[in-house]
């Protein structure tokens, strides 16, 4: 394979991986933007999304003959349900673990978030065990049917990779609409800017924050579903690494910035693929976390974020 094809092939790999990071990063960035909390448990909500999807799928009699529009209908139902369940989990986490600490020193909720993350991981471990769990790959062709590969100028693109990218872009568009075109979005932006002022303007702060957690967690749930489709397996600790990398993506793009999170997600995915190709696979996480440190040290506002002075 010529060198340039190789490069583009890795670009595709990176974009597909990045699509999932992007979806997770959206949740990080929204929550941080509004309550300035690094929701450490968010990566585990992503894994939870694939676990919920698995359980829902177990209720549906899928066979390799289920085909066409039925598959897409099933997929949509599973996505919506998994997202809904994850959203509820997100709201519950906020209500039970974070709300009491909203006015406590920063340290307190961050430590709580680590605790919530550990609890979620262990609950998933109890739920489905400590090994990889197979996930039925039924999209797009049907259960057990290998997906097609489009070859564009010598570069192969799997349909499943396309699903990842399309779903994540659709999610970002929807989120943008919600944040910039709806009343809830206005309330969210107002709360992010100045919580007290927003309250004075009659905005329900608790409700708005709960909605933010709901939407962030629901997006992680969507990511959990498509990761199941893409990889065909899931694992209770996946959310830890994926969460850290998605957080890196959010920081890279400029935390609090929705487009930035998306951009950051794709960039981190691409960086990983390129490191694997041109440096060595064993250095991928070192490279990604070095980027995290460098960005925080030299440009804490990220690529698209605004320079915000520390609030005092």
């Amino acid at each position: 394979m010529p060198e340039i094809h190789q490069f583009f092939q890795q670009l595709i790999n990176g974009i597909a991986l990045g699509g999932m990071y992007a979806l997770i990063a959206l949740g990080y960035t929204m929550v941080y933007g509004i309550v300035e909390l690094i929701n450490f448990a968010h990566g585990d909500v992503y894994t939870l999304g694939s676990y919920f999807s698995l359980s829902i799928l177990a209720l549906i009699p899928l066979s390799r003959y289920t085909g066409g529009w039925q598959l897409w209908l099933i997929a949509s139902c599973v996505i919506v349900l998994a997202a809904l369940l994850c959203g509820i989990v997100g709201v519950l986490i906020e209500r039970l673990a974070y709300r009491r600490l909203r006015n406590a020193p920063r340290l307190a909720p961050l430590i709580t978030a680590i605790g919530v993350s550990l609890i979620l991981e262990n609950l998933m471990q109890i739920w489905k065990g400590t090994s990889e769990v197979p996930f039925p790959q039924f999209l797009p062709g049907g259960l057990g049917v290998p997906d097609n590969v489009f070859v564009v100028a010598g570069v192969g693109i799997h349909e499943r990779a396309l699903i990842v990218v399309v779903v994540s872009i659709l999610a970002m568009l929807a989120l943008n609409l919600l944040v910039f075109r709806t009343k809830l979005g206005t309330a969210m932006r107002a709360t992010a800017q100045d919580r007290d002022a927003a309250q004075l303007m009659g905005i329900n702060i608790n409700g708005t924050i709960a909605w933010t957690f709901f939407i962030g967690a629901a997006l992680a749930g969507v990511a959990g579903f498509i990761s199941g489709i893409y990889y065909g397996t899931t694992f209770f600790l996946n959310g830890y690494q994926a969460g850290l990398k998605a957080f890196t993506a959010a920081v890279l793009g400029g935390i609090g910035n929705i487009t930035g999170a998306m951009l950051g997600g794709f960039l981190i995915g691409i960086v990983e693929a390129m490191t694997s190709q041109y440096i060595s696979d064993q250095w991928t996480s070192v490279v990604v976390f070095s980027i995290l440190i460098l960005i925080l040290v030299f440009r804490p506002s990220g690529l698209l974020g605004e320079q915000v002075p520390e609030k005092v």
Partner: peptide, 25 residues
Amino acid sequence: APTLRLRGDYLAIVTLGFGEIVPQV
């Protein structure tokens, strides 16, 4: 030296990244 001027939770993340890098290196 370079990171202590960061806000509390950013510092937490930098040290977390460092903690991931060291065993891997």
